[in-house]
Amino acid sequence: MTLCEDRVVIVTGAGRGIGRAHALAFAEAGARVVVNDLSAAVAGEVAASIGPRAVVNTDDVGTWAGARRLVEAAVDAFGGVDVLVNNAGIVRDRMIVSCTEDEWDEVIRVHLKGHFAPLHHLAAHWRAVAKAGGTVSGRVINTSSGAGLFGSVGQANYSAAKAGIAALTLVAAAELGRYGVTVNSIAPSARTRMTEHVFDSMAVPEHGFDAMAPENVSPLVVWLGSAEAGEVTGKMFEVDGGRICLVDGWQRGREVDKGERWTPGELGAVVRELVAGHRPVPVYGA
């Protein structure tokens, strides 16, 4: 399969789990891969399994300088970058009343800043290429979560970061399209170190289809990273097992316009009428 033949792909958090599956799937599709992970050992194992078409990078994408070095390393190794898969993440699950400042800050840094910083530096690279008259076929695939789309009890920090990634995807798609760049996001479900406590009751089948295998998520990501996917941007997809679902975000519903300022006392009946019958997707764990 050569859907991504010679395309240069950065995958963050690619040493284990879903990121590892992405890196291997892109390599199988013909891509050259920058395997980014804080652990040189696990990143090296993934790169070794790919061969000379892969390089290792251990920069921290949650820092401005680390994200810049990652992009520079990809350009130095392969002459450019075609695809960024923002996948790196951590969890520090706590109820709101128990969450510490450090646990909040670290999750926001790794997930949200860890998406924005590589995107920022790579967007600057693509803009420079486009302004110099070059052709850009850039693809960004961000990693949000059902927690970011619908909320998850005990994961206020993670949910907030993943919701921010969903909004970042929309803004980046609108801003970067002029340079030949698409930006999409996935909300995957799979068995990884981060989700073992969620899916530990789902046994791995000895034979047949393992719906929670990380490898199930990667085919969509590889296609979104291909030159073929140029007409798809600003979209969010849930993906797990063999299921792919296009997710619509916040949409305007019922409205009432008085044409002048309301008084607080008259708004009770108005708000009750607006929310009557509204049934949002339940928050996970509620």
Rank of each mutant, 00 (worst) to 15 (best):
25 A>Y: 03
99 C>M: 15
89 G>V: 09
139 R>Q: 10
143 T>S: 12
64 W>Y: 13
90 I>T: 13
76 D>W: 09
57 N>C: 13
77 A>I: 05
127 R>E: 15
135 T>K: 14
99 C>R: 01
72 E>N: 10
102 D>I: 08
34 V>C: 05
76 D>I: 02
34 V>N: 00
118 P>G: 08
27 A>L: 00
131 K>F: 02
93 D>T: 04
62 G>P: 07
122 L>R: 01
77 A>E: 10
124 A>Y: 09
125 H>K: 07
122 L>A: 03
142 N>T: 09
121 H>P: 06
69 R>F: 03
108 I>G: 10
30 G>C: 04
51 G>L: 03
143 T>G: 11
35 V>Q: 02
79 G>I: 07
44 G>T: 07
81 V>D: 05
144 S>W: 04
70 L>M: 04
90 I>G: 08
120 H>Y: 13
40 A>K: 14
127 R>A: 13
26 F>A: 04
62 G>W: 02
28 E>I: 02
123 A>E: 05
103 E>S: 03
50 I>H: 00
95 M>C: 08
96 I>P: 06
81 V>S: 00
82 D>Q: 09
25 A>W: 01
103 E>R: 01
123 A>T: 11
134 G>W: 05
29 A>W: 00
54 A>T: 02
101 E>R: 14
45 E>G: 14
42 V>Y: 04
30 G>P: 09
113 K>R: 14
91 V>S: 14
65 A>R: 13
135 T>D: 15
92 R>G: 12
133 G>D: 06
52 P>R: 12
130 A>E: 14
27 A>I: 01
62 G>T: 11
137 S>R: 15
29 A>M: 02
116 F>V: 13
103 E>H: 03
86 N>K: 03
87 N>Q: 10
40 A>G: 15
86 N>A: 13
82 D>M: 02
82 D>V: 02
96 I>H: 09
73 A>Q: 14
58 T>Q: 12
56 V>F: 04
22 H>Y: 13
31 A>K: 00
102 D>Y: 09
32 R>A: 05
126 W>E: 08
80 G>M: 04
51 G>Y: 02
26 F>W: 02
97 V>R: 14
22 H>N: 12
69 R>Y: 02
132 A>R: 13
44 G>N: 11
73 A>R: 12
79 G>C: 09
125 H>D: 03
121 H>N: 05
73 A>E: 12
129 V>Y: 03
56 V>M: 07
49 S>R: 10
88 A>Q: 04
54 A>H: 00
136 V>I: 09
87 N>V: 09
117 A>Y: 14
113 K>S: 15
114 G>Y: 03
56 V>P: 05
131 K>I: 06
26 F>E: 00
130 A>Q: 11
120 H>W: 07
67 A>N: 05
109 R>P: 12
44 G>P: 08
24 L>I: 08
98 S>E: 15
125 H>F: 12
97 V>E: 15
144 S>Y: 08
93 D>P: 10
89 G>Q: 11
58 T>A: 05
37 D>E: 12
102 D>N: 12
48 A>L: 04
55 V>G: 07
109 R>G: 08
58 T>S: 12
83 V>R: 01
59 D>T: 14
98 S>G: 12
38 L>Y: 11
64 W>P: 02
123 A>V: 06
